[in-house]
Simulated assay, not measured.
Amino acid sequence: MAVYLDVIWLLNFCFDYLLLALTGILLKKSVKKRRLATGALVASFYVLFLFVPSLTFMTQPLMKLLYSVLIVYLTFGFTRFRSFFQCWLLFYFVTFMIGGGMMGAHYFFQQDMTVVNGAIATKSTGFGDPVSWTFVLIGFPLVWFFSKKRVENLETTRIHFDQLASVTIRIDEVSISAKGLIDSGNQLQDPLSGCPVMILDMTVHEANFSPAFIKKAKNITEFQEEGEGERWEHRLRIVPFRAVGQDHQFLCAVKPDEVMISLEGRSFIIKKVLVGLSFHSISGEKDYTCILHPKMLTGHKATAS
C-alpha cells in the first residue's frame, strides 16, 4: 500500500491550523497568523512519529501530553499559569469536539447492517470503518463552522441569563412579577421628569390591566379624550422616543408605585420610574418579559434579599 506522507502531513497541518484558530476564537484572543502557523507546523510533525521507528516513543500518553503543552505554548504564549492551563484544556476540548462531531456524522450516515437471504448481517473490517478523504475534506470544515456557531450561541445565551433579574412592579394592590433583561442600550427617559423608562411586554402581562385601561393605552392620541373613566388613567404618560429608521414615535407608559429588582442576592427598590407598555413581544423565546433601564440599578441603595 502506497502512503503519500506529504499529503497526509499537509492535511494535518491545515486541520491543526483550524483547531488552533478555533481555540483562539473561543478564548477571545487575537493570535497572529504567524504564531498559528508555527503551532500548526509543530503539531503536524506528529504524523512523522507514526512512521519513524526511532520516534515511536512519542506516541506514549505522557509524551503526547507534553507535546500538546509545547503546541499551546508556541501558539498562545505564556503569561500566567491559570490562563495557560485554561487555554491548554480548551485546545483539548476543541479537538475532541471536532473529532467527536466527525465520527458522529460518519456513523450517522454509515449503514452497518444488510439483509442477506432474509437474515440480518453486519459489516466490520476489524479495525473500524474507514473514513474517506472526501468525507474528511467536506465534513471537517462543516463541523468546525457548526461547532463555532453553537459555542457562540451558548455564550450569548449565558450572557443574557447573567443579565436577567427578577422584577416586581406594584401599582396600588396589583403586583406584577416578571423576568427583566438589563439592557445597557436602553437609554429611554421621560423628557419632563427625567425618569428612566423600562419596557413591559403586554402580550404576557395584559391580564393585569383592565380592558378600559388597555383600550386607552393602545389609543395614545385619544386616551385624554372624555369617555369612560379608568382608575389608573391618571398614571398614564406619553413618552416620545426614536427608533432606528423612525422618528417622532410615542410610547404609552404607566407610573407605578414602585419597582423592586432582585439581582445576585441584592434588592433594589425604585420609585422614580415609568413602565413603558409594549403590545409587541420583546422576546421570541419569552426568556424575559421586560427590559430594564441600566440607571435603575445605579444611585439606589441595595439591600440583601
Rank of each mutant, 00 (worst) to 15 (best):
V174C: 12
I199P: 00
A212L: 00
G194P: 12
S177D: 15
K179N: 13
I220V: 07
A217E: 01
V174N: 10
I214Y: 02
K179R: 15
L188H: 01
I176T: 11
V204Y: 05
E222Y: 03
V174Y: 07
S193D: 13
D183L: 09
G185H: 03
M202R: 07
V174P: 03
F213Y: 09
F223S: 03
A207H: 12
P196T: 14
K216P: 01
L188Y: 01
G194D: 13
I214M: 07
Q187G: 04
P191Q: 10
I214W: 04
P191R: 08
G185D: 07
S193L: 14
A178C: 15
F223Y: 12
Q187I: 12
K215D: 04
M198R: 11
G180I: 12
K216E: 02
H205K: 05
K215N: 00
A207R: 10
K215V: 01
N219A: 06
T221Q: 06
V204C: 01
Q187V: 13
N186Q: 08
L192T: 09
N186K: 07
M198W: 09
L192R: 03
L200D: 12
I220K: 04
G194M: 13
K215G: 01
S210C: 02
V197A: 11
V197Y: 06
L188N: 02
P211S: 03
I199T: 12
D190R: 05
T221C: 02
K216T: 07
F209L: 09
V204E: 10
I214S: 01
P196V: 14
A212V: 08
P211Y: 02
T221V: 03
H205Q: 07
T203V: 11
D190M: 08
P196L: 13
S193K: 11
M202W: 07
D201V: 10
E206C: 07
K179H: 08
T221R: 06
L181M: 15
P191Y: 09
E206S: 13
V174F: 06
D183C: 09
A207N: 08
N208Y: 15
K218C: 05
S210V: 04
Q187H: 13
S210Y: 00
Q187N: 13
C195M: 15
E222A: 06
L188E: 03
K179S: 14
T203G: 02
N219G: 00
I220N: 00
F209C: 04
T221G: 02
